[in-house]
Amino acid sequence: MHHSVLSPMGPEAARIAELSWLLFLGGAAIFLLVMLLLALALGGGPGVRRRLGARRAILAGGVAFPVLVLSALLVHTLGVAAALGLGEPAPLRIEVTGRQYWWEVRYPDREVVTANEIHIPVGRAVELLVDSGDVIHSFWVPSLHGKIDMIPGRVNRRRFSLDRPGVLRGQCAEFCGTQHALMAFFVVAEEEAEFERWLERLRAPVAKPEEPFLAQGWQAFGQAGCGACHAVRGTPWAGRSGPDLTLLGGRLSLAAGTLDNHLATLAGWIAGPQDIKPGNRMPAFNTVLDGPELRAVAAWLESLR
């Protein structure tokens, strides 16, 4: 799993990582130089100290040197910034809406919706459009690109691509309320064919299961009113105020990166989400569903892969 500024997975992040190393090494060199001068000022020989104490030394160290270094750095960084700018619209568009405390992900050209996980084919230029459904969030996947704020009333854009397959972790980077810390997501970089297969599965309507235990889960899901907030593709349930649950069983995490994804954690989450992530919008269902029903709902949802 990649989540560091210094482990880039695509050309944009790589460019920034390269710039970061330049800044760190240059900064370290200047820091050591200044500390050396300070040490010489404290304990150097009389000749060195006389030269350091001259007005000319202030002009050289405080004016000439920074002007030269910073001018060069300015030109360089503006070049990097321009290269990271938005060019022509990329063919693959992905829209992400931040909500307290999860992510809605849409592929408008493919007419699919998912949540808390973004699949991206490697080597393709992607255009990311972000906005917010409530307060300000910030979309940040360190190994992908810099962050971009999700601001109500505005749509912000970013362009990027990924070089190789892998899983990248992202997290909300603008304080957005009680559970800002538990608002993460994953980016899955995969080969084109695999990405298309994933889209195919996501687009396929979910049918009522044959297996009785799973069918009981489907039933209970409807009776408990889960569909008021959640959608499952192809079913009567099309709520949009909570995450879309199509292919939930195949996701890497539950509750926006809060829990590992398996039957027990899912059942626990449905029963008492306020104990796990206090302040999120989902009410507890342990009063609505009994034990077997809870397990059935969880089992059915886990079967959606």
């Binding site: 300015l74 070049g79 321009a82 700018g85």
Partner: peptide, 18 residues
């Protein structure tokens, strides 16, 4: 003058609205 020069520099390198 230095600050003004530096601030004008980006206009030669960075597109206006991207």
């Amino acid at each position: 003058a230095l600050a003004i020069l530096w601030e004008a520099l980006p206009v030669l390198l960075v597109p206006a609205c991207a």
